[in-house]
């Protein structure tokens, strides 16, 4: 046996404790699945939906995959409460989307906004942001440990390939990602697309017959 001890391994890990912390927060330990048992849906989950713990703007503790994404139709974007750039415009836009979707938000279509500055964005700060923008019920704002939100941001593809731009939160990705998790149907559009078109795109996630009308659901 070669001379690498657990101590050396921990030194490797120690060199980037951030990473260790991140890894530790990821999926609760379980035996690694055999390749033949893993479905494409599992692969998407493993790659993109770490089951980190988050807190909603109403103070509720949730697990990202288990509680927010699994078996659901979801609409996800990133923001932060003190953002003066694109967030207000996108939030206003998504509020219009929520109005068109009516009572379905929180019922069979789930909207989530994740914080890019979780160290600042307490649940209270997010609740205030939501109230200020007239966000309706059923749309959850989420914060948590910075390492977890960063992992989510990367896992969900809200990154810039240039590390310098990527580090500048005020210049963050303004897309909205939506998907039907059980159907493995995922797409994204600009957050500043017209609300009716965003609703249309959300509609394509659903089987025909259960799609929202771009003109509004009422309720």
């Amino acid at each position: 046996m070669k001379n690498i001890s657990r101590r050396n391994v921990m030194a490797l890990l120690g060199a980037a404790p951030f990473v260790a912390a991140v890894a530790a927060r990821a999926e609760s330990p379980k035996p690694a699945p055999r390749a033949e048992d893993v479905t494409s849906r599992d692969r998407i989950r493993e790659k993109h939906f770490p089951n980190v713990q988050l807190v909603t703007h109403e103070g509720k503790k949730v697990r990202f995959y288990d509680d927010l994404v699994k078996d659901k139709v979801v609409v996800i974007n990133f923001m932060y409460a003190k953002c003066e750039g694109i967030c207000p415009g996108i939030t206003t836009n998504l509020v219009k989307v929520q109005r068109i979707l009516g009572g379905r938000v929180g019922k069979d279509i789930f909207m989530y906004s994740l914080s890019l500055k979780p160290e600042q964005d307490t649940p209270e700060a997010l609740a205030e942001y939501a109230r200020m923008h007239k966000v309706g019920p059923g749309w959850q704002y989420l914060t948590g440990a910075p390492a977890d939100l960063e992992l989510l941001r990367r896992s969900l593809g809200f990154t810039d390939p240039d590390p310098l731009v990527d580090a500048d939160k005020s210049n963050h990705i303004g897309n909205v990602r939506y998907g039907n998790e059980p159907l493995q149907r995922w797409a994204a559009c600009p957050g500043m697309s017209k609300p009716e078109m965003i609703v249309e795109s959300i509609g394509w996630l659903l089987p025909q017959g259960s799609r929202p009308s771009a003109k509004g659901e009422g309720k």
């Binding site: 391994v9 921990m10 490797l12 890990l13 060199a15 980037a16 951030f18 990473v19 260790a20 991140v22 890894a23 530790a24 990821a26 999926e27 379980k30 690694a32 699945p33 893993v38 692969r43 493993e46 790659k47 390492a147 960063e150 992992l151 990367r154 590390p163 310098l164 990527d166 580090a167």
Partner: peptide, 26 residues
């Protein structure tokens, strides 16, 4: 030890992967 993802791949940290770390450290 947090060195493997549940997909069975070595985590891409400096020292285990050819890919560079970002400024965020991960």
């Amino acid at each position: 030890m947090g060195l493997l993802t549940s997909a069975g791949m070595l985590i891409p940290k400096s020292g285990l992967s050819a890919r560079p770390l970002t400024s965020a450290g991960f």
